[in-house]
Protein backbone atom coordinates (compact mmCIF):
# COMPACT_ATOMS: atom_id res chain seq x y z
CA UNK A 1 0.00 0.00 0.00
CA UNK A 2 1.33 3.43 -0.95
CA UNK A 3 1.83 6.20 1.55
CA UNK A 4 0.26 8.88 -0.65
CA UNK A 5 -3.23 9.54 0.60
CA UNK A 6 -5.90 9.48 -2.03
CA UNK A 7 -8.47 11.22 0.10
CA UNK A 8 -7.81 13.35 3.13
CA UNK A 9 -10.63 14.71 5.26
CA UNK A 10 -9.70 17.29 7.90
CA UNK A 11 -11.94 18.81 10.56
CA UNK A 12 -15.00 18.31 8.37
CA UNK A 13 -18.08 20.12 9.58
CA UNK A 14 -21.48 19.92 7.88
CA UNK A 15 -24.79 21.25 9.14
CA UNK A 16 -28.34 21.26 7.86
CA UNK A 17 -30.41 24.39 8.38
CA UNK A 18 -33.56 24.19 10.47
CA UNK A 19 -36.35 26.35 9.10
CA UNK A 20 -39.34 27.72 10.96
CA UNK A 21 -42.56 25.97 10.09
CA UNK A 22 -44.49 28.77 8.39
CA UNK A 23 -42.15 31.49 7.14
CA UNK A 24 -39.31 29.06 6.46
CA UNK A 25 -36.91 31.39 8.19
CA UNK A 26 -33.65 29.90 9.18
CA UNK A 27 -33.93 29.45 12.94
CA UNK A 28 -30.98 27.24 13.64
CA UNK A 29 -28.90 24.41 12.39
CA UNK A 30 -28.45 20.74 12.96
CA UNK A 31 -24.79 19.78 13.11
CA UNK A 32 -24.76 16.46 11.28
CA UNK A 33 -20.97 16.25 11.11
CA UNK A 34 -19.02 18.08 13.80
CA UNK A 35 -15.38 17.16 13.40
CA UNK A 36 -14.34 14.29 11.19
CA UNK A 37 -10.75 13.47 10.21
CA UNK A 38 -9.48 10.53 8.20
CA UNK A 39 -7.45 9.53 5.17
CA UNK A 40 -7.84 6.84 2.57
CA UNK A 41 -4.82 5.54 0.66
CA UNK A 42 -5.02 4.16 -2.86
CA UNK A 43 -6.32 0.60 -2.82
CA UNK A 44 -7.53 0.81 0.76
CA UNK A 45 -11.01 0.10 2.11
CA UNK A 46 -12.10 2.36 4.92
CA UNK A 47 -15.36 1.64 6.71
CA UNK A 48 -17.62 4.19 8.29
CA UNK A 49 -19.95 2.75 10.90
CA UNK A 50 -22.47 4.30 13.19
CA UNK A 51 -26.16 4.28 13.87
CA UNK A 52 -28.79 6.34 12.09
CA UNK A 53 -28.15 10.01 12.66
CA UNK A 54 -24.44 9.51 13.31
CA UNK A 55 -23.57 11.49 10.18
CA UNK A 56 -22.02 8.70 8.13
CA UNK A 57 -24.07 9.33 4.98
CA UNK A 58 -23.53 13.07 5.29
CA UNK A 59 -19.77 12.53 5.27
CA UNK A 60 -20.09 10.53 2.04
CA UNK A 61 -22.42 13.00 0.38
CA UNK A 62 -20.12 15.90 1.25
CA UNK A 63 -17.05 14.15 -0.15
CA UNK A 64 -18.74 13.55 -3.47
CA UNK A 65 -20.12 17.09 -3.56
CA UNK A 66 -23.81 16.47 -2.91
CA UNK A 67 -23.64 18.56 0.28
CA UNK A 68 -21.57 21.64 1.06
CA UNK A 69 -19.10 21.58 3.92
CA UNK A 70 -19.41 24.35 6.52
CA UNK A 71 -15.86 23.97 7.60
CA UNK A 72 -12.77 21.86 7.28
CA UNK A 73 -11.00 20.56 4.25
CA UNK A 74 -11.37 17.64 1.85
CA UNK A 75 -8.34 16.86 -0.29
CA UNK A 76 -8.32 14.45 -3.20
CA UNK A 77 -4.82 13.53 -4.38
CA UNK A 78 -3.52 16.63 -2.64
CA UNK A 79 -5.99 19.09 -4.19
CA UNK A 80 -8.48 20.91 -1.99
CA UNK A 81 -11.91 20.00 -3.32
CA UNK A 82 -13.99 21.53 -0.54
CA UNK A 83 -15.04 24.59 -2.52
CA UNK A 84 -15.09 23.03 -5.98
CA UNK A 85 -17.02 24.64 -8.79
CA UNK A 86 -19.42 22.60 -10.91
CA UNK A 87 -16.80 22.06 -13.62
CA UNK A 88 -14.23 20.96 -11.08
CA UNK A 89 -16.78 18.60 -9.50
CA UNK A 90 -17.50 17.06 -12.86
CA UNK A 91 -13.84 16.30 -13.43
CA UNK A 92 -13.56 15.00 -9.90
CA UNK A 93 -16.44 12.57 -10.28
CA UNK A 94 -14.43 10.78 -12.88
CA UNK A 95 -12.12 9.64 -10.10
CA UNK A 96 -14.77 9.26 -7.47
CA UNK A 97 -17.95 7.29 -7.94
CA UNK A 98 -20.77 6.21 -5.68
CA UNK A 99 -22.85 3.05 -5.32
CA UNK A 100 -26.13 3.58 -3.51
CA UNK A 101 -28.18 1.44 -1.18
CA UNK A 102 -31.33 1.07 -3.16
CA UNK A 103 -30.72 -0.64 -6.49
CA UNK A 104 -34.34 0.07 -7.39
CA UNK A 105 -34.23 3.83 -6.95
CA UNK A 106 -30.73 4.53 -8.24
CA UNK A 107 -31.16 3.20 -11.80
CA UNK A 108 -33.17 5.04 -14.43
CA UNK A 109 -36.08 2.69 -15.24
CA UNK A 110 -36.37 4.02 -18.79
CA UNK A 111 -32.82 3.19 -19.82
CA UNK A 112 -31.53 -0.22 -20.80
CA UNK A 113 -28.59 -1.65 -18.90
CA UNK A 114 -26.27 -0.73 -21.73
CA UNK A 115 -27.54 2.86 -21.80
CA UNK A 116 -27.09 3.08 -18.02
CA UNK A 117 -23.47 1.97 -18.24
CA UNK A 118 -22.72 4.14 -21.30
CA UNK A 119 -24.23 7.27 -19.73
CA UNK A 120 -21.12 8.31 -17.74
CA UNK A 121 -19.19 8.28 -21.03
CA UNK A 122 -21.56 10.89 -22.45
CA UNK A 123 -20.40 13.27 -19.73
CA UNK A 124 -16.77 12.21 -20.10
CA UNK A 125 -16.45 11.41 -23.83
CA UNK A 126 -12.71 10.91 -23.79
CA UNK A 127 -12.78 7.79 -21.58
CA UNK A 128 -14.07 5.43 -24.24
CA UNK A 129 -14.38 6.36 -27.93
CA UNK A 130 -17.91 6.26 -29.32
CA UNK A 131 -17.47 3.24 -31.55
CA UNK A 132 -16.24 1.07 -28.68
CA UNK A 133 -18.85 2.02 -26.09
CA UNK A 134 -21.29 -0.80 -26.75
CA UNK A 135 -18.63 -3.47 -26.59
CA UNK A 136 -16.99 -1.89 -23.52
CA UNK A 137 -20.36 -1.78 -21.74
CA UNK A 138 -20.79 -5.47 -22.43
CA UNK A 139 -17.30 -6.19 -21.18
CA UNK A 140 -18.13 -4.38 -17.96
CA UNK A 141 -21.35 -6.36 -17.59
CA UNK A 142 -19.36 -9.52 -17.97
CA UNK A 143 -16.83 -8.31 -15.42
CA UNK A 144 -19.47 -7.74 -12.72
CA UNK A 145 -21.11 -11.09 -13.41
CA UNK A 146 -24.03 -10.06 -15.60
CA UNK A 147 -24.82 -11.87 -18.81
CA UNK A 148 -23.83 -9.41 -21.62
CA UNK A 149 -26.70 -10.78 -23.72
CA UNK A 150 -29.03 -8.90 -21.38
CA UNK A 151 -27.57 -5.50 -22.37
CA UNK A 152 -30.83 -4.33 -23.90
CA UNK A 153 -32.96 -5.31 -20.91
CA UNK A 154 -34.36 -2.78 -18.43
CA UNK A 155 -33.66 -2.57 -14.69
CA UNK A 156 -37.06 -3.99 -13.67
CA UNK A 157 -36.16 -7.24 -15.40
CA UNK A 158 -33.34 -7.88 -12.93
CA UNK A 159 -33.27 -9.04 -9.33
CA UNK A 160 -31.98 -6.84 -6.52
CA UNK A 161 -28.50 -8.37 -6.58
CA UNK A 162 -28.24 -8.04 -10.35
CA UNK A 163 -29.35 -4.42 -10.16
CA UNK A 164 -26.64 -3.72 -7.63
CA UNK A 165 -24.17 -5.24 -10.12
CA UNK A 166 -25.47 -2.80 -12.76
CA UNK A 167 -24.83 0.05 -10.32
CA UNK A 168 -21.31 -1.24 -9.75
CA UNK A 169 -20.66 -1.54 -13.50
CA UNK A 170 -21.83 2.05 -13.93
CA UNK A 171 -19.51 3.19 -11.14
CA UNK A 172 -16.59 1.37 -12.78
CA UNK A 173 -17.25 2.87 -16.22
CA UNK A 174 -15.08 5.94 -15.59
CA UNK A 175 -12.23 3.91 -14.07
CA UNK A 176 -12.44 5.72 -10.74
CA UNK A 177 -9.85 5.58 -8.01
CA UNK A 178 -12.34 5.74 -5.18
CA UNK A 179 -15.81 4.25 -4.91
CA UNK A 180 -18.08 5.34 -2.11
CA UNK A 181 -20.46 2.53 -1.17
CA UNK A 182 -23.33 3.89 0.90
CA UNK A 183 -25.07 0.83 2.36
CA UNK A 184 -24.40 -0.81 -1.00
CA UNK A 185 -25.18 -4.36 0.12
CA UNK A 186 -27.70 -3.64 2.88
CA UNK A 187 -30.80 -4.27 0.79
CA UNK A 188 -29.58 -7.64 -0.49
CA UNK A 189 -30.38 -11.11 0.77
CA UNK A 190 -27.47 -12.70 2.58
CA UNK A 191 -26.60 -15.26 -0.12
CA UNK A 192 -26.57 -12.56 -2.79
CA UNK A 193 -24.85 -10.07 -0.48
CA UNK A 194 -21.90 -12.44 -0.19
CA UNK A 195 -21.60 -12.59 -4.00
CA UNK A 196 -21.53 -8.80 -4.25
CA UNK A 197 -19.00 -8.50 -1.41
CA UNK A 198 -16.71 -10.97 -3.14
CA UNK A 199 -17.12 -9.03 -6.40
CA UNK A 200 -16.16 -5.76 -4.68
CA UNK A 201 -13.13 -7.47 -3.21
CA UNK A 202 -12.02 -8.85 -6.60
CA UNK A 203 -12.47 -5.47 -8.32
CA UNK A 204 -10.43 -3.82 -5.62
CA UNK A 205 -7.49 -6.12 -6.34
CA UNK A 206 -7.88 -5.84 -10.10
CA UNK A 207 -8.19 -2.04 -10.41
CA UNK A 208 -6.40 -0.99 -7.21
CA UNK A 209 -9.66 0.64 -6.08
CA UNK A 210 -10.13 2.36 -2.78
CA UNK A 211 -13.52 2.14 -1.10
CA UNK A 212 -15.21 4.28 1.47
CA UNK A 213 -17.63 1.68 2.76
CA UNK A 214 -20.59 2.88 4.78
CA UNK A 215 -22.71 0.34 6.53
CA UNK A 216 -24.71 -0.23 9.66
CA UNK A 217 -23.88 -3.94 9.37
CA UNK A 218 -20.76 -4.49 11.40
CA UNK A 219 -20.14 -8.02 10.16
CA UNK A 220 -19.98 -6.71 6.60
CA UNK A 221 -17.60 -3.97 7.73
CA UNK A 222 -15.45 -6.46 9.59
CA UNK A 223 -15.21 -8.58 6.49
CA UNK A 224 -14.36 -6.00 3.86
CA UNK A 225 -12.51 -3.13 5.55
CA UNK A 226 -8.83 -2.46 6.22
CA UNK A 227 -9.64 0.35 8.64
CA UNK A 228 -12.83 1.33 10.39
CA UNK A 229 -14.04 4.65 11.77
CA UNK A 230 -16.79 4.64 14.37
CA UNK A 231 -19.00 7.69 14.11
CA UNK A 232 -21.30 8.88 16.88
CA UNK A 233 -23.07 12.22 16.89
CA UNK A 234 -21.00 13.56 14.00
CA UNK A 235 -17.67 12.80 15.64
CA UNK A 236 -15.24 9.93 15.07
CA UNK A 237 -15.09 8.27 18.49
CA UNK A 238 -12.70 5.49 17.57
CA UNK A 239 -10.58 4.33 14.65
CA UNK A 240 -8.71 1.10 14.06
CA UNK A 241 -8.51 -2.15 12.15
CA UNK A 242 -11.66 -4.27 12.30
CA UNK A 243 -9.84 -6.73 14.51
CA UNK A 244 -8.82 -4.07 17.02
CA UNK A 245 -12.33 -2.71 17.21
CA UNK A 246 -14.02 -6.10 17.52
CA UNK A 247 -11.57 -7.55 19.98
CA UNK A 248 -10.50 -4.59 22.02
CA UNK A 249 -12.77 -1.57 21.66
CA UNK A 250 -11.69 1.41 23.77
CA UNK A 251 -14.51 3.87 23.51
CA UNK A 252 -17.74 3.21 25.45
CA UNK A 253 -19.93 3.78 22.44
CA UNK A 254 -17.85 1.39 20.31
CA UNK A 255 -18.09 -1.22 23.04
CA UNK A 256 -21.85 -0.90 23.18
CA UNK A 257 -22.14 -0.99 19.40
CA UNK A 258 -20.00 -4.07 18.91
CA UNK A 259 -21.53 -5.90 21.88
CA UNK A 260 -24.93 -5.56 20.24
CA UNK A 261 -23.92 -7.35 17.02
CA UNK A 262 -25.88 -10.60 16.91
CA UNK A 263 -23.72 -13.69 17.18
CA UNK A 264 -24.66 -16.55 14.87
CA UNK A 265 -23.90 -19.27 17.40
CA UNK A 266 -24.19 -17.60 20.81
CA UNK A 267 -23.92 -21.00 22.52
CA UNK A 268 -20.27 -21.34 21.47
CA UNK A 269 -17.82 -20.11 24.15
CA UNK A 270 -20.83 -19.27 26.29
CA UNK A 271 -20.93 -15.93 24.52
CA UNK A 272 -24.20 -14.10 24.42
CA UNK A 273 -24.87 -11.33 21.96
CA UNK A 274 -26.96 -9.51 24.53
CA UNK A 275 -25.26 -6.85 26.60
CA UNK A 276 -25.62 -7.49 30.32
CA UNK A 277 -27.71 -5.29 32.57
CA UNK A 278 -31.05 -3.64 32.16
CA UNK A 279 -32.38 -2.15 28.99
CA UNK A 280 -30.88 1.28 28.44
CA UNK A 281 -33.63 3.86 28.29
CA UNK A 282 -33.53 6.66 25.77
Amino acid sequence: MTEVSLLKVQNLRVSYPIHSSILQRRIGENMAVKDVNFTISAGQTVGLVGESGSGKSTVARTIIGLEKADGGRIEFEGRDITQSTRTELKALRRDMQMVFQDPFASLNPRLSVQEIIVEPWLAHPDVVPKNRRASEAKALMDRVGLNPDYASRFPHQFSGGQRQRIGIARALALQPKLIICDEAVSALDVSVQAQVLNLLDDLKQEFNLAYLFISHDLSVIEHICDRVLVLNGGVVVEEGTPRELFENPQDDYTKRLFAAVPVIRPWLNGASSKPAGTIPRY
Partner: peptide, 23 residues
Protein backbone atom coordinates in the same frame (compact mmCIF):
# COMPACT_ATOMS: atom_id res chain seq x y z
CA UNK B 1 -24.80 -22.06 2.02
CA UNK B 2 -26.64 -19.40 4.02
CA UNK B 3 -24.44 -19.98 7.05
CA UNK B 4 -21.32 -19.83 4.86
CA UNK B 5 -22.47 -16.55 3.29
CA UNK B 6 -22.56 -14.63 6.56
CA UNK B 7 -19.62 -12.27 6.85
CA UNK B 8 -17.81 -12.48 10.15
CA UNK B 9 -18.90 -16.06 10.78
CA UNK B 10 -15.49 -17.36 9.72
CA UNK B 11 -11.88 -16.30 9.62
CA UNK B 12 -11.19 -12.70 8.69
CA UNK B 13 -9.74 -12.04 5.25
CA UNK B 14 -11.05 -15.29 3.84
CA UNK B 15 -13.39 -14.83 0.86
CA UNK B 16 -17.04 -15.59 1.55
CA UNK B 17 -18.53 -18.71 0.08
CA UNK B 18 -21.78 -17.43 -1.40
CA UNK B 19 -24.52 -19.53 -2.92
CA UNK B 20 -24.32 -19.12 -6.70
CA UNK B 21 -27.22 -17.64 -8.67
CA UNK B 22 -30.29 -16.02 -7.23
CA UNK B 23 -33.56 -17.23 -5.66
Amino acid sequence: GLLDSIPGAHAMGEPLRPIVGSP
